[in-house]
Nucleic acid binder design. Structure first.
Lengths: 339, 339
DNA sequence: TTGTATGCGTTATCAA
DNA sequence: TTGATAACGCATACAA
């Protein structure tokens, strides 16, 4: 049933080498025979066997993308961006997600099992010893998304969260007059949380605002838990005139809704800002002031790095830094664009 | 660099066939030699070459998943469900998304190119002649997600939207006293819109409510456009005491926000219900009454169908119907669960 | 129970 | 410009 290169050769009265040449290095074959071969190919509906070809070329033109079990939009946007760029570059994407609370073995299995991909992009949400061990075992071109694993050779694409956080806090402090700040993030081991919290504390200090450790909360990036926290805290926060920095939009939305349910007037009584600039940011009332993170670009850049490394395996490790950007809406209390 | 079956054989002082047997039909090989081979495998870190194996077995254990460029959560949930089930069954997933406004050629390219997958699941958002032509060209096991393409042999997984819509309208009419209804959907060619609109009209008729054609709106499933429409219409709708049925949660959220911005009191002055039960449904105020669609189950079921067909290529075309379920929250005006 | 030999569909090398 | 032939790494029929 499957038509092979031999069938095409027979049909065009040439040898398989000629067919192969038509397929790959079309220039060095006679015009007339090339046409004959081409029409034979079309007539028979021939498609080269991927396995045989992969066996020879040691290239599958497939890239692996391993993501943690992420909150919605982040996940799909990264895939979307990676997918689009991969196709442009002639590659395909194989995707696996691994549970966030993975003990490392799942990551291991996923990555190790990728015997057929030409390279793999991995997004890590927690960098522990096990992750590191797994990743250092990877023999293929490796791109780490949104993080770096010291001691492991890999390219990486990271977000410059510091800039975004700094711009956000500067706006909050300088333009909105924030005096006290609350941080609501993910678990302390989460790489994004670590970075955003560090940037947050640094920027707060720079703005002359000190953060009490009791004003740092570690949740799980979800609306519900943030809503629950909000129900307990918003009145106190409003009384103390704090501004809330949530490490993603969904938690910011949860806090906003809790505040509104509690009868607070927003943003006046409780400024709340988010992070990521997902679609949710435009759906809250007041709309979220947040930091835009170029999610689909992350996916696209990862694919690009992988492809570049495939073309030149010897080049030095490369890091692409993507900028994040302050988006001022209403939830911070001041619409005006910061200068 | 890459270690082959021959290396393992040498290392264990056996022939490659013995190694192969250990790998595949472990039972027919001597206990002692098996152990020797296994330790050689581990020691050398041997992994079978996927291409060579695929060349022999004509199986890649890779499944293709082709999705339209969907609104966020739907997309990621389907992938998540498919991915999880695929792994359980020993398969991997290759994902491509094709633009919703595709002229068919992109779909064609994606599917035709899938020479290396064992089967492919395709979600179609529009069924036109071109799509049909493309799909009927597919030689591999094919599962159509959320639709059926007549004249093409394929398995399918569909959502019983009729039941959900019927339950929703019954609740709206019987329990909430809806007298007039407005439908806000996607484009008239969209398969979901077609089905949801048909079910909507049918259920409305059954409940004794007639729908004027000027009360049927075709948007694009997005928050923004629904918000824009809402800005123009909510006052009129409130005046006429209509209830709004939006074909997804995001549009429902847009209309709700427009209504609230217009100073309406919800759900009292304008009941609005959604569809899908995405996370957004719990984030609106009032919270959305909606119909739950089992998104991740769709992905999982598609994978299952594909695997079953691979095991038994001759079995008759199978359709899995997933139930949708009414979720009553606040936006319809009546909290009570329908009996 | 194990080993030998063949073929899977390509690309690459070399000769014609 | 073309064709014969040897890999590529594996599974398997057949021989031992």
């Amino acid at each position: 049933m499957p038509v092979s290169i031999q069938d095409v050769a027979d049909h065009a009265n040439v040898s398989i080498s000629t067919v192969s040449r038509v397929l790959n290095r079309r220039n060095i074959v006679n015009e007339a025979t090339r046409k004959r071969v081409e029409s034979a190919i079309k007539e028979l509906g021939y498609r080269p066997n991927v396995f045989a070809r992969g066996l020879m070329l040691r290239r599958s033109h497939i890239l692996g993308l391993v993501l943690p079990d992420l909150h919605g939009e982040f996940y799909s946007e990264i895939i979307r961006g990676a997918n689009a760029r991969a196709r442009e570059l002639g590659y395909r994407l194989m995707i696996s997600s691994v549970a966030a609370d993975d003990d490392g073995s799942e990551l291991m299995a996923t990555v190790a099992d990728q015997a057929l991909v030409d390279g793999v992009a991995v997004m890590v949400s927690e960098v522990d010893a096990r992750t590191k061990a797994t990743l250092s075992d990877v023999k293929l071109p490796l791109v780490v998304l949104d993080g770096e694993v010291k001691g492991v050779r890999h390219d990486s694409v990271v977000i410059d969260q510091r800039m975004g956080v700094a711009a956000l806090l500067k706006h909050l402090i300088d333009n909105c007059g924030a005096q006290r700040l609350v941080f609501v993030g993910g678990q302390p081991t989460n790489v994004d949380t670590i970075e955003r919290l560090a940037a947050f504390q640094e920027a707060a200090a720079e703005g002359g605002v000190s953060i009490e450790s009791s004003d740092v909360f570690h949740l799980d990036y979800r609306y519900d838990t943030a809503f629950d926290l909000g129900q307990k805290k918003v009145r106190e926060w409003a009384r103390r005139r704090v501004s809330v920095f949530a490490a993603n939009d969904e938690m910011a939305a949860g806090i906003i809704d809790a505040a509104i349910d509690a009868g607070l007037s927003l943003p006046g009584e409780l400024p709340v800002v988010g992070f990521d600039d997902t679609r949710i940011a435009a759906m809250t009332r007041p709309r979220l002031t947040t930091v835009h993170v170029p999610m689909s670009s992350m996916g696209a850049s990862a694919v690009e790095l992988l492809c570049q490394r495939l073309e030149d395996p010897t080049r030095p490790a490369t890091k692409i830094t993507l900028q994040s950007e302050l988006i001022v809406r209403e939830s911070c209390g001041v619409h005006a664009n910061p200068s």
